[in-house]
Design a protein around this nucleic acid. Sequence first.
DNA 1: ATATTATATAGATAATTGTCTATTTGTCAA
DNA 2: TTGACAAATAGACAATTATCTATATAATAT
Lengths: 103, 103
Amino acid sequence: MATTDPVLFAKALADETRQKIMTLCCCAWISVGEIVEQLQVTQPTVSHHLGVLREAGLVEAREEGKQTFYRLNQKKISACCGRLMVNFAPQDEVTKKMIIASE
Amino acid sequence: MATTDPVLFAKALADETRQKIMTLCCCAWISVGEIVEQLQVTQPTVSHHLGVLREAGLVEAREEGKQTFYRLNQKKISACCGRLMVNFAPQDEVTKKMIIASE
DNA sequence: ATATTATATAGATAATTGTCTATTTGTCAA
DNA sequence: TTGACAAATAGACAATTATCTATATAATAT
C-alpha cells in the first residue's frame, strides 16, 4: 500500500466537515446526496471535500447511473497512520507492536 | 493517555514546516535556536509552530536558563494515530492488531 | 426531444493560517 | 546595572482554504 505524503494526509483530515464525511463513508458506500442530507452544508461543498479526500487517496468512488458512491479507503488510512507513528513515535511501544502487526 | 481532538491533531500536522520541526524534536530535547538553525524560517515562525504543537499537546517544553527545549510527545502521537485508525479504519487488520497491542 | 435529477466545476468571498518585522520578556554575564 | 542573548508575543500581509451561488455535465424518465 503506497502511503500518501504525510502532509497531504494530515491536510485532508484537518477539517471538521471532512472528518464527518469520512465517518459517514467509513464502512459503506454512500452517495453524495445522502452525505448532503446528513450535514449542514451544500452539495457543492460536499463535492469539494470529496475531491480533497480523493486527491489524498482516502476515498474510492463508484459511479452508478446518475449517482456517485464513495467509500473510505481504510487500508490507506491505516497505512498513513502507521507511517505517522513510525515517523513521529518510533520508540513508543504501541508503534513497535503495530510495525510487527503490519509485517 | 487523553487523546487530542482528531481535528486539532490533524491541523497540527497539516504543515510541512511543522512536520520538519516534529522530526527534529522527535527523539531528543532540542532548543528553539537549534531548530531555527536547521530550517529556512525565522525564529518567530518557529515559535509560532511550536505554539501550535504545544496547544495540541504534541510537544513538551522544558526551560533551562535562557533557552527552551522541546521534545515530541511520542505517546500522545501514538494515541492520536491509534484513535484515527479506530475512527476511520476500524475493519482493517492492522488497526485490530494495534488495538490489541495498546490494551 | 425535453424535463428532471445527481454530481461536478467555476468563480466570488470571507475566514484561517503561515510568514515576516518589530518589540517585549526573561535570563545570564561583565 | 547594563548589555547581550534566547524565546515569545504583537501586528501586518499574503497565501490558502471553506463556503456559497450559479452553471455545466451527464444520466434517466416522460
